[in-house]
Structures are given as C-alpha cells and as structure tokens.
Simulated scan of single mutants.
Amino acid sequence: MNKWIGLDIGGTKILGALYGEDNKSIAQSKKKTKAQEGVEIVMEQVFKVIDALYETIPKDETSTLLGIGIGVPGIVTTDGIVKFSPNIPFKDFELKSLIEKRYQVPVSVGNDVNVAMFGEYKFISDPANKNVLGLFVGTGIGGAIIIDGELYVGQGAAAEFGHIVVNADGAFCGCGAQGCLEAYASKTAMQRYVETQLSKGRLSVLKDFHEKDGAVIKSSTLQKAYEANDTLAVEVIQYASKYLGIAIGSLVNMFHPDLFILGGGIMESLGKEMMPLVLKEAERHAMPSLLDSVRFEISKLGDDAGIYGAFQLIKRD
C-alpha cells in the first residue's frame, strides 16, 4: 500500500498525518512549532512529526512512502522556497529541497490557505466543480483559486484575496496598504472594531468575555453573543459581512466560478449567520444574474483541511 504524508506547519503547532490510497488518515502526529526559538528548532519539530509518522509505516515491500506535502503560511514560490512567513522564522528558506534531501522522496510545498482550500475542494469531489474559489476568514484573510481542477498559484503568491481593496481611502492594513479586505473582515479587524466600541462606553456582553479571555475574543464567543442578540456582536458581524460581500461580488465578476468555499474560524463558527448578509451585499456588486449559478458552501474539514490538502497536493504531483 502506497502512503503519503500531509503536513500543516502553523505558527503555534505542526500537524501531520499519514494517508493511504483510500484517502483516509492512518495516523496523526502533532508538535509545538516553537517559532520563537528559531528556524533550527522549528525544523527539529518538523522532523519529529515526519519521523513519528514514518515509523507507523509497516516495514514490508508493499508499503512505500511516495511523498510529503506541506502547507506553510506566507509567500511560497512554485519551487518550494518560503520567501516570507509572518509567524515562522522562514525567509528565503528552501523548505522543499531540505525535506527532499533528508527523506529522499518528492515534496510539494504551498501556501497554507491555498493548500487547505485545495483539500476542501478534493474532499467535496464533485466533477461538476471545475472552477472554484476559496476564501479563508481567520486571524487574517487568505484565498485560493482552482481552475479546471488545478490549484492556480501564479508565481507562487496568487489569491491573496485578503488584500483586495474594498475601501480605497479606508483603514490601513497590516501589509502596509490601505483599504484591504483584511482590515475590515478578518478576526483581527473584528476584534479591533469591538475594542474601539467598548472604549467608547458601549454596553455589550463582549466586554465581559474580553476582560476574562484577555486580548483575543474567540469566534465561539462572538457566536454566543450574536445568538443572544447582543447589539455590538450583531453590529460587528454585519460590518464584516458587508465587506466580505463587496469582495465576493467582485471575485464573482472576475472568475464566475462553479463553487465558492468559505472557511476559517469565523466562517465555521458564524457562517450560518453571516452567509445571508454576505450574499445580499455580494448581489449589490456582482453583475446581474452571475451569482445565480454560483454555489456557496462552508468548509467541512476544519483543522484537518491543511493536512488533507497537503496530502492531495503531493498525491496529485
């Protein structure tokens, strides 16, 4: 039985899984990234995850590791060089060649959101969906483009949908530009909106959660506040949904895909509440009738999207 390893390298944890020919996970391994300790320590953690999975492969002639797929945040070139990663000390880092030399198997490396959305696409496994867009709403906002069933990455950094400009004279984004979608609809932007309103004396149950949980308001917390009809929670959900809708309307105009997948912690927790608001706004910005033929779905794999997508990426190659 042939085997493949899918690896998701994140800012806080490294998650890996061993997959078989039936597309099912055989074993999983997880380690802390330890990003603050430097690149050598990070790679030691990566090797520990891969080694643990490798040890689960039966040592017989019929079991072979055919490759390793990897998703990593940041800008990744088509030849597997991580040019920059926001939360991991990789800069012009030749991740693909390093892993290939150590394990003597083919390796594919891609941006984590691209890889995760490719996993969602392959999991759906519907031949009618040849052209698919993905939008991942988490701490930041990322995207993915699939054309004729293949992941499109351009020179390596295509589908940075979080940096579509939705308000040219608007808020500054962490990337340095002004008016990006990420500055309005990411979890970070929603957090900032809530904190600004609380500082003005707004009454909200989110104040209690914020003081108890510290700096981060969790997606599940926003969901509970929204379900309780908290005025500020409803307002911030409407605020983010508006700008997501603006971006999605424009993306539909550009690509007119068969399917649009929305993922990330925000959409997985609040997708049911946000989708009607997002689509209503998208209708205002998409050309007439284009949205009618586009299917919209919330991601289904959760935390496993990255490892499953990485597996599918290397299995495809």
Rank of each mutant, 00 (worst) to 15 (best):
I147H: 02
K101D: 09
L198Y: 13
A116Y: 01
L259A: 11
E182I: 04
V137F: 04
K130T: 08
P73S: 00
Q178H: 08
L151T: 08
V205S: 15
E55R: 04
A177C: 07
Q191P: 11
L7G: 01
G302S: 08
E94A: 12
R316L: 10
T196Y: 10
M275Q: 12
A225Q: 07
I5C: 04
E61H: 09
S29N: 12
V72A: 07
I164K: 01
C175A: 03
L181K: 08
L251C: 04
G149I: 10
Y103F: 05
V109G: 14
G170M: 05
I314Y: 14
K218Y: 11
I237C: 11
D208Y: 15
A310N: 02
G179M: 09
Q191D: 09
D148F: 12
I314G: 10
P73F: 01
R202K: 13
N253E: 15
F123Y: 15
G80D: 01
Y243T: 03
L232M: 06
V105C: 05
Y103Q: 00
L198C: 08
F47Q: 09
Q155T: 00
G20S: 13
I9D: 14
A177G: 10
G174R: 12
L18N: 11
G67N: 02
Y54D: 02
P257A: 14
A157N: 02
Q45A: 07
I147G: 00
H256K: 14
E160S: 01
L18V: 10
I41M: 06
P127L: 04
D22Y: 05
K200P: 11
Y184L: 09
A116R: 01
G162Q: 14
T56Y: 04
G6A: 04
V39K: 15
K200S: 13
Y226F: 12
K96M: 12
V278S: 07
V205F: 11
N23I: 01
K31Q: 12
E283H: 06
E150A: 13
M117R: 05
I5S: 02
A158T: 00
K207P: 14
G119P: 07
G143M: 03
H163M: 05
L262T: 12
K207R: 14
I124D: 13
V76S: 06
S299L: 06
Y121V: 14
G110R: 01
E100C: 07
F209N: 06
I146F: 05
L53W: 14
A128F: 10
E227M: 05
I141P: 05
L222D: 11
K187H: 12
